[in-house]
Design a protein around this nucleic acid. Structure first.
Lengths: 153, 153
DNA sequence: ATAATATTGTTGCAAATGCAACACATTAAT
DNA sequence: ATTAATGTGTTGCATTTGCAACAATATTAT
């Protein structure tokens, strides 16, 4: 909403619409390939892999879902044997932490490889340099937004 | 998923997460100011204003919602007197077209002004030039994606 | 010491969402 | 001329989602 006359021309709306395509593309692929996890579960598993042993609420803040939804995703991942939950302390407080299992690691690697191959099979939308630049800008934009938005998670 | 090891570092996931902040920011504002329409309704009204008399399915393709959801939004906008619906022909076929009413125009202008003022009150996240560049890249990326994704609307 | 506040995770319910199926009309196929 | 296929909008339902409330515990205030 800089000099635009219309909200739908703003970067906020354009971002949302573009993200819908991304989500759609990913979910279609996960269904088509009959993946054993959903796209959300996969992203959560990836987040756990990167951030190590992490409590449920901190995870919720990373995947930007509320606590009940995060709990439900973890229930599903646990049932599938991809993560393990254990009690631990954080600031003198009892929390349920989460870590990825060997089975989970295996699935994460395999699925990541499949995704990477699929995306590289798509026609190149923007050049590698352009994509990197775009990604950096988006991350900067997001970090700016984070300061303005109260996410109440 | 170019050279990244992790999906959550990909532009696809980063776009989705950033869009969540945008949506959250907008919805919080609409609630705080007790707007007479929701953010989705506002965006739809804006789309109708720009695209003129348009049938329901074409509108659905623009706002990226399915036909039932689009119909529901239009019902609400119609009840509030912001749009009018009328029967018309398109390719020899009877369709319900939609146009914005004077009341709708007024509300659109007022709300757009409020939004613009609010967004300009935020601390500048990226410079104007950077934002323009980012927006152009996002639109280019989106147009590339559109060719790959079957949206079945 | 008691009460108020804060943190974490879960439960339950209400609202939103998506999707298949339907009704209706038009065009195309055999 | 029937049948099949396509396009449009609506209805109904099942799934998802978000949010408030709760239970349990720890910290802080009065």
């Amino acid at each position: 909403m800089q000099q635009e006359k219309h909200y739908i021309d703003s970067i906020y709306y354009q971002l949302e619409q573009t993200a819908k395509y991304c989500k759609y593309l990913g979910m279609q692929l996960f269904q088509k390939l009959n993946m054993p996890v959903t796209l959300d579960e996969f992203a959560t598993l990836d987040t756990i892999k990167i951030n190590g042993e992490i409590c449920q609420r901190d995870l919720a803040k990373l995947i930007l879902k509320d606590r009940p939804s995060t709990g439900r995703i973890l229930n599903s991942l646990e049932e599938k044997g991809l993560i393990a939950r254990f009690a631990d302390m954080k600031n003198n407080r009892l929390v349920r932490k989460t870590k990825i299992t060997p089975v989970g690691e295996k699935l994460l690697e395999g699925t990541t490889a499949v995704l990477k191959e699929y995306f590289s099979s798509l026609p190149e939308i923007l050049s590698g340099d352009k994509i990197q630049e775009l990604k950096q800008s988006i991350i900067a934009f997001r970090e700016g937004l984070e300061k303005e938005v109260e996410m109440k998670i």
